[in-house]
Computed example of a mutant assay.
Amino acid sequence: MIYRQLNNINEFKLLKDIDRSEIVNEKYILKNNKIILVKDYYNITSWIDEEVNEYINRMNDIYNSKGLIIGVFDNEKIVGIGALDKNLCGKNKNMYKLDLLYIHHDYRSLGIGNKIIEIFKEETKKDNINALYISATPFKNTIDFYLNLGAIVTKELDSNLFDLEPEDIHLELNIK
């Protein structure tokens, strides 16, 4: 696998080539500052054009504000993408935001997501920032991934991010 920084909008458009399909049977909800697993069903298939365009624009904004976009390639095929937004967030504006992380369906559980997070943690340490803010889709696999990395329900809820994604589970990952 080749991990490298993506540097332009044409590379950001590769996002649509990642197969994000997934069957979801459970998700988490936040209740009394605790996450609770509940039954729910989603059949995630192909990308919606508006959603892809929104993500491409967000990656472009992140890149233009000195953030970091990482693409993962198996030969010429993109199999993962992640974006680190360096605009400070969290209640105390002391965290970077893991803005997006997608791994191709056929490449999950191979450590690609872990490696992207490690790259982001190193970048964050260089800037003397101690945590990543994660506003994550509440699906069981997604939240379990972050919890297994050591993320916790954030104590510094960013109200702007919460207003954008109130059903997300808002986490923080200490990087020290």
Rank of each mutant, 00 (worst) to 15 (best):
Y41L: 13
N141F: 07
I116Q: 04
V38R: 13
K13F: 06
F12E: 07
Y102T: 01
S21Y: 02
Y55M: 13
F139V: 03
S109R: 13
Y102W: 10
D168M: 09
Y133D: 05
K121G: 01
G150T: 03
V52L: 12
L100V: 11
N33H: 12
D163H: 11
D74R: 11
E51W: 08
E51G: 08
L132I: 00
D163R: 11
I62A: 07
Y133P: 00
L110S: 06
K27F: 02
G90W: 10
F12V: 05
K115V: 01
F139Y: 13
L110A: 00
N64T: 10
I129H: 11
Y55I: 11
L14P: 09
Y28C: 05
V72D: 00
W47Y: 13
S65Y: 11
L157T: 07
N130I: 09
Y96E: 08
L68E: 09
K31M: 10
D85A: 10
L101I: 15
S159H: 11
V52W: 08
K39V: 07
L68S: 06
L100N: 13
N64M: 10
L161E: 15
S21E: 02
D17L: 13
K125Q: 13
I112V: 06
I81K: 02
L6N: 05
V153R: 03
I112G: 01
I69P: 04
I44A: 03
K126C: 13
K86P: 05
I78L: 07
Y63K: 12
Y102D: 02
D19N: 15
D49Q: 14
E156C: 06
I134E: 00
G71E: 03
T154I: 02
D106T: 06
E11F: 04
K125N: 13
I23G: 00
D85P: 06
I56R: 08
S159T: 15
S135D: 15
K140A: 02
D99N: 14
V52P: 05
N32I: 00
N60H: 12
I103N: 00
I143F: 01
Y55P: 03
I143L: 02
K176Y: 12
G67K: 10
